[in-house]
């Protein structure tokens, strides 16, 4: 598999001196410096939230919540460690809380997908690949949370196992095992579906 770059080109989990400088400035009371971090990471956060929630309104809402949480938690960030893994882990925890709060999320997902289908039909674009992705997405959303989270980080966020380990605190072996279980479950779940 080609390792495709994150939405922000060139973003790696290594620390970036600019980030540390802005974090330090925020911590010293210069709130305005946080705006730079939002600008830099909002696309990444929105994409993560979108993959997790899949509903336009919730995505923007959740992304804002994530940044507020990041801001509130900044004093707890260990400057000697990587900022991006920490950012991901705060984001995931916020999303998990948010996701749990949404009642009937399956319905929300379905609605979003129906809307998407309508859009496609409306534009008279028959995009098989996109339709496939929606089917897969729906199956991913039905996975248990422990498996879904890892699948999203690995396949949707294009993170390496070692990077996921840094974010989640799980061992590489545990992550690999979850990935395997998730793939197997996706296979089983999708085999029951009517092929189209």
């Amino acid at each position: 598999m080609n390792h495709i770059e994150s939405p922000i080109s060139g973003v790696k989990l290594d620390n970036n001196f600019d980030d540390l400088e802005y974090i330090s400035r925020v911590l010293q009371g210069e709130t305005k410096a946080f705006e730079v971090l939002i600008e830099k990471y909002q696309l990444l956060i929105k994409k993560l939230a979108y993959n997790y929630l899949h509903h336009t309104e919730d995505v923007l809402d959740a992304s804002q919540d994530i940044f507020v949480e990041i801001y509130k938690s900044l004093p707890r960030f260990d400057l000697s460690k990587g900022f991006l893994p920490w950012l991901y882990s705060v984001a995931l925890n916020t999303l998990k809380k948010k996701y749990r709060k949404i009642k009937g999320h399956t319905l929300v997902i379905k609605k979003a997908q129906e809307q998407k289908r309508e859009d496609i039909e409306k534009n008279e674009i028959h995009n098989r690949a996109q339709e496939d992705r929606m089917v897969v997405k729906e199956a991913v959303h039905k996975l248990p949370e422990k498996l879904r989270e890892i699948i999203i980080l690995y396949y949707y966020e294009n993170l390496k196992v070692s990077e996921i380990s840094e974010i989640t605190g799980l061992s590489d072996e545990n992550i690999k095992s979850r990935l395997f279980r998730a793939r197997k479950k996706l296979k089983e779940d999708l085999q029951d579906m009517q092929p189209f």
Partner: peptide, 15 residues
């Protein structure tokens, strides 16, 4: 579909 979608993950879910 899963194998194919996951192999082209940059376009997996365009925002």
């Amino acid at each position: 579909q899963v194998i194919n979608s996951f192999s082209r993950s940059s376009s997996l879910d365009q925002l």
